[in-house]
């Protein structure tokens, strides 16, 4: 039981990182990154081949290129960098100003094709069988029980989550964060202020890709195996569902969404007694997730906790009676607009 709970805790942390990263790209910057999972995958593969050691050919069941055994923080650092580098590569042709539905389709194609390529080229990353036996960090050095190791890994992922949460919060409240939202909401208006939409999107894309790469590295060091089955395009859909249900462009909402979607619908059923033939639960899970997605898109498209309204702090002395009045007027107008839409 403790084993399951600690595993769930680690998954929750990693899914949170994914959700925040995708929320940064999709929610705050408006980039429909339907290829999100490949950036997590590249982080996972990087961390894997940098800890597995050189491929000596002794293990005939497992072939991969390069291979090294770097000490602890380096595989994760390189996983993060790999996520950023791949984002830059993909972003270089997919972030131009184009219709968002085209953009989404292009990124989806990238995701589908990446899986096919990695699955077919065996010598690259062991094809569809994937890599196994990836060592856990410090597992040989630390002399603790399995349960203690699991819980310490969960705590460690938790610390990473807290750090990333505050970095994101700080960044999104800064001028850069305002620029990101401005480009999302009105690219032409943002351009008149001298903001280059494509450049801002690229910055968000690379930064999000780095978080995705980091989450992949953390995940693979915990589960010790990685194969194309772990990163089908449906996985992106799971994370996106968490973001949409929780609240688009709201990182607190993403926590709620992740808890609901990833933990309750996707992870918990695997601990329940099996129904039907093996694999039925997994297939039905996605049917349920897709239905929830459709219902939310129809009924509550902004999620459980919608995006917080950005408040401008006015410097003291400027707040005049007229200012208050204007604010009141604006609030009334907004309320009226809401009523009109509701009707």
């Amino acid at each position: 039981m403790s084993f399951y709970l600690s595993t769930l805790a680690v998954y929750f942390g990693i899914d949170l990182l994914s959700a925040w990263s995708l929320n940064l790209q999709f929610g705050f910057a408006g980039v429909p990154n339907f290829a999100f999972i490949i950036f997590q995958a590249v982080g996972a593969y990087t961390a894997a081949i940098l800890t597995l050691g050189p491929d000596t050919g002794i293990n005939s069941f497992q072939r991969y290129f390069f291979g090294a055994s770097l000490p602890y923080p380096f595989p994760l650092i390189f996983a993060t960098l790999a996520g950023g580098a791949l984002s830059y590569l993909i972003g270089s042709f997919s972030l131009k100003r184009m219709r968002r539905d085209y953009q989404a389709a292009v990124l989806l194609i990238v995701s589908l094709i990446a899986v096919q390529v990695v699955s077919t080229v065996v010598r690259f990353l062991n094809g569809s069988n994937g890599l196994t036996g990836i060592p856990k960090p410090f597992s040989g050095v630390l002399n603790i029980s399995v349960a203690a190791y699991q819980w310490s890994y969960a705590a460690y992922v938790g610390v990473v989550c807290i750090i990333i949460y505050f970095i994101l919060r700080r960044l999104l409240r800064s001028g850069w964060g305002r620029a990101v939202r401005a480009v999302r909401d009105h690219e032409d208006a943002a351009a008149t202020l001298g903001l280059n939409g494509t450049k801002v999107r690229m910055q968000v894309f690379v930064f999000g890709g780095m978080i995705a790469g980091l989450s992949g590295g953390l995940l693979v060091q915990f589960i010790n195996a990685w194969s194309p089955a772990s990163w089908s395009y449906a996985e992106t859909f799971g994370i996106l569902t968490a973001v949409i249900i929780g609240g688009v462009a709201n990182n607190k909402g993403a926590i709620v969404g992740t808890l609901l979607v990833q933990i309750i619908f996707l992870q918990l059923p695997s601990f329940l007694p099996q129904i039907g033939y093996p694999g039925l639960t997994a297939a039905l899970q996605w049917v349920v997730i897709a239905s929830i997605w459709l219902i939310f898109m129809a009924v509550k498209p902004r999620g459980i906790i919608p995006e917080a309204r950005y408040k401008v702090k006015q410097p003291k002395g400027l707040i005049t009676h007229e200012g208050d009045k204007a604010e009141q007027l604006l609030a009334n107008l907004a309320a009226g607009e809401k009523d009109r839409v509701a009707k």
Partner: peptide, 19 residues
């Protein structure tokens, strides 16, 4: 729903039917 929202809807339908 805008063009992009419709893509998300069709993606959901695709996954739903496929699974």
């Amino acid at each position: 729903s805008g063009l992009f929202e419709m893509v998300m809807v069709t993606l959901a339908i695709d996954l739903l039917l496929q699974y």
